[in-house]
Deep mutational scan, measured.
Amino acid sequence: MQNSHSGVNQLGGVFVNGRPLPDSTRQKIVELAHSGARPCDISRILQVSNGCVSKILGRYYETGSIRPRAIGGSKPRVATPEVVSKIAQYKRECPSIFAWEIRDRLLSEGVCTNDNIPSVSSINRVLRNLASEKQQMGADGMYDKLRMLNGQTGSWGTRPGWYPGTSVPGQPTQDGCQQQEGGGENTNSISSNGEDSDEAQMRLQLKRKLQRNRTSFTQEQIEALEKEFERTHYPDVFARERLAAKIDLPEARIQVWFSNRRAKWRREEKLRNQRRQASNTPSHIPISSSFSTSVYQPIPQPTTPVSSFTSGSMLGRTDTALTNTYSALPPMPSFTMANNLPMQPPVPSQTSSYSCMLPTSPSVNGRSYDTYTPPHMQTHMNSQPMGTSGTTSTGLISPGVSVPVQVPGSEPDMSQYWPRLQ
Rank of each mutant, 00 (worst) to 15 (best):
N3K: 07
S4R: 06
H5V: 12
S6K: 07
V8M: 08
V8G: 01
Q10S: 09
L11K: 04
L11Y: 06
L11H: 07
G12Y: 02
G13K: 04
V14D: 05
V14H: 06
F15D: 02
R19G: 01
P20F: 01
D23W: 11
D23R: 10
D23A: 14
T25S: 11
R26K: 02
R26N: 01
I29T: 00
I29S: 02
V30N: 01
L32H: 09
L32T: 02
L32R: 03
A33Q: 12
H34L: 07
A37P: 03
A37D: 05
A37W: 12
P39G: 04
P39L: 13
C40Y: 05
C40R: 07
C40T: 08
I42M: 03
S43N: 03
S43I: 01
L46S: 04
L46C: 11
L46P: 00
S49Q: 03
S49E: 01
N50F: 07
N50I: 15
N50D: 03
S54K: 15
S54T: 14
I56D: 02
L57K: 03
L57W: 01
G58T: 05
R59T: 06
Y60Q: 00
Y61G: 06
Y61Q: 10
Y61I: 15
E62H: 14
T63L: 04
G64Q: 05
G64M: 08
S65L: 12
I66Y: 08
I66G: 03
R67L: 11
R67E: 13
P68W: 03
A70G: 06
I71S: 05
K75P: 04
K75V: 08
P76C: 09
R77E: 02
R77K: 15
V78D: 02
V78H: 02
T80S: 08
P81E: 15
E82V: 07
V83P: 02
V83S: 09
V84A: 06
V84Q: 08
I87N: 00
I87W: 00
Q89N: 08
Q89R: 08
Y90P: 01
Y90Q: 13
R92E: 11
R92W: 09
R92H: 13
R92C: 09
E93A: 09
S96K: 15
S96H: 12
F98A: 15
A99G: 07
A99S: 06
W100D: 03
E101D: 05
I102Q: 15
I102Y: 06
R103K: 10
D104M: 13
D104F: 07
D104Y: 09
R105G: 14
R105L: 11
L106T: 03
L107T: 08
S108C: 09
E109G: 13
G110T: 11
V111Q: 14
C112T: 12
C112V: 09
T113E: 09
D115Q: 07
D115L: 08
N116H: 10
N116M: 11
N116C: 14
S119G: 00
V120F: 00
V120I: 15
S121P: 14
I123N: 02
I123W: 03
I123K: 03
R125M: 03
V126Q: 05
L127R: 06
R128G: 07
N129M: 09
A131F: 12
A131W: 09
E133F: 13
K134W: 14
Q135L: 12
Q135T: 11
M137E: 15
M137Y: 09
G138K: 06
G138N: 08
D140Q: 09
D140L: 12
G141K: 15
G141L: 10
Y143A: 11
D144V: 13
D144Y: 10
K145D: 08
K145R: 08
L146D: 07
L146C: 14
L146E: 14
R147Q: 14
M148D: 08
M148H: 04
L149K: 15
N150V: 05
N150I: 15
N150P: 13
